[in-house]
Design a protein around this nucleic acid. Structure first.
Lengths: 325, 325
DNA sequence: CCGTCCCTTGAACGTCTGTTCATAACGGCT
DNA sequence: AGCCGTTATGAACAGACGTTCAAGGGACGG
């Protein structure tokens, strides 16, 4: 059997084992005896069933406590469905990102429906999410990249492509890559490219996307957003952004602390979508982790730039009650 | 805490533990340390979360093998969605019923939607199903009994009421009982009762039911259908039915081996619904277990009297390929 | 204020489960 | 055919899990 090709015999047997285990409540031992298999084999089939998404486990939350961070977020931002992820006390930000991306991956798996188009940004956060997706086949699903990843200076070749491909592959979906530079040097070149049919096709897919998935970027995050460290912006660019009061970015399109984004020159050079696309989207999932992103997140929320937020508990707390100390 | 009243604190904590366990994949030990609880307490919360339906586990079946019994059933009865439940080789029919009712209870939990009305028959099979339901709150759900259970000879008082109440209680739904005799002695009495407003209310609910749940009855089942042993039918009645080629019943309304049910005098005395109600229903779940029910099941299938069937594997096999020996 | 009942708690136990590792079976290639 | 790399298998182990049970704590009534 080739890797990646799913064996229908194994899947059938795994489903049968999973039913006996999870529905009928038998032990692996009893299942092994009943089906004439060895117990380790049953255990392996069970792992297979879980890993390949053949078994889906969802948690139905009771209504949140009124004093919870989620309730406070809902009260402050009425358009928002927040998911605040608890982390172990005293843990590092890399643990927070791990927890948040696992939760976001699970949420995405429960959200996607057949026939939808999903707009996808890229970066450190979404890469982490992509590594925790539960495999599932969703018919007629399409992923479209929201901002370009082909940069003259992109020494981490494959990083972005891998992320998008991992999402698409996980759901048996088509991936539409966006092979343009993340930032153009000349806005006119961007305008010219935007008239190209191949680019227009991607832009149309972005327009009619049912679900958007992205994070917010911030220059001062402890785990820095990819775009700020990979050499996409030269020092002069970064200084210009700071002078204009830029608080963060979504898909390499910048916005200010109050959530506005008009009249920021750099955006004319960015390959990312106009943020009104983000604001208009009926379903948009924003995944955020790390105290360094608090400012960027507050700005995005002020601008109504997300409908669903997955965030770790310390970051959510800092957002609402300020940073400790 | 009063029994039956769910403690919101416990539920919240249980949901949190369940998320850490099932979504984040931590061990009970790690969860205990993180939340400052003892490991047994975490284990108990986890059980609580599963038992109360806070955690939902569903198995996504890969498409069935072409030579499987399910595929054969689908080919023979194109209107049917079959669920064939495997049982241990050499096991007794009571084990089959156990397996089938667990599977049926799980299926029902995945089927019901807010606002629906569910028509419910009663008997040995549905009683077994009622004992395996996963608790879940479904808003605005109503259960309505399909056939009467108040019989002058009903010495097993409470049996039927308990079944229906168990279903309703499990989903936080309202139960509409049907307090008329299972069989009237005089058809005219039935007609008179059918003009009563209380009865008409039940009949209207039956008419607009979204989902029907029932089994098929057969006189010769090894685990005999309740109606044939509880003294509802006297020997003369039973002989009359046999003479008219009756193959089985659904909610104490009889049909022949070819699935027709017109002109069976006994049905004029039965409190159950006209079988055209069953045939018309968009969703109808029939739960069948035991070789004795093969004939009754074959008749019901011939008449198109179900859309979904949950049946054990030996019974399904006997249906398609005849009884062994 | 004390006794009783009942529920909750966590240490300890025995079972169940995932994984490891040595061996066997398989399939491709020369 | 014969070799070799790869995959599948089940006995054995270590760890994780659910449950039991004796002790502790709170509510209620005497």
């Amino acid at each position: 059997m080739l890797p990646g090709v799913n064996d229908v015999t194994t899947d059938t047997q795994a489903a049968q084992v999973a039913r006996l285990y999870y529905v009928q409540g038998l032990t692996t031992d009893a299942i092994a005896r009943e089906l004439g298999l060895s117990r380790p084999k049953v255990s392996r089939l069970l792992s297979h069933a879980r890993r390949t998404g053949l078994v889906e486990i969802r948690i139905h939350d009771p209504q949140a406590q009124p004093q919870s961070l989620e309730a406070q977020l809902r009260a402050t931002y009425p358009f928002l469905t927040p998911h605040v992820i608890r982390v172990p006390p005293g843990s590092s930000e890399s643990v927070w990102l791990e927890r948040v991306s696992v939760a976001a991956a699970t949420l995405l798996g429960q959200t996607l429906r057949a026939g939808q188009t999903v707009g996808l940004a890229w970066g450190t956060t979404l890469d982490a999410v992509s590594r925790h997706l539960t495999p599932r086949h969703v018919p007629d699903l399409e992923f479209v990249q929201l901002n370009g990843s082909a940069s003259a200076r992109d020494f981490m070749s494959g990083f972005v492509t891998d992320t998008v491909t991992r999402f698409a592959g996980n759901y048996g979906a088509r991936a539409h890559l966006f092979p343009v530079p993340t930032f153009f040097d000349d806005p006119l070149t961007k305008q010219a490219m935007w008239r190209e049919r191949s680019v227009r096709h991607v832009l149309e897919l972005q327009e009619r996307a049912d679900v958007l998935v992205y994070s917010v970027g911030a220059a001062d995050a402890k785990l820095p957003s990819h775009v700020y460290v990979a050499g996409y912006l030269d020092p002069a660019d970064q200084q210009t952004l700071a002078e204009q009061g830029v608080a963060g970015d979504i898909a390499t399109v910048f916005y200010r602390a109050d959530g506005t984004f008009g009249g920021i020159p750099m955006n004319a050079r960015s390959s990312g979508p106009d943020l009104s696309l983000i604001a208009r989207a009926s379903q948009s999932i924003c995944v955020v982790s790390g105290l360094g992103k608090v400012g960027a997140l507050r700005g995005a929320l002020a601008g109504g730039l997300m409908r669903t937020l997955v965030v770790d508990e310390p970051t959510a707390h800092a957002l609402l009650h300020g940073l400790p100390g």
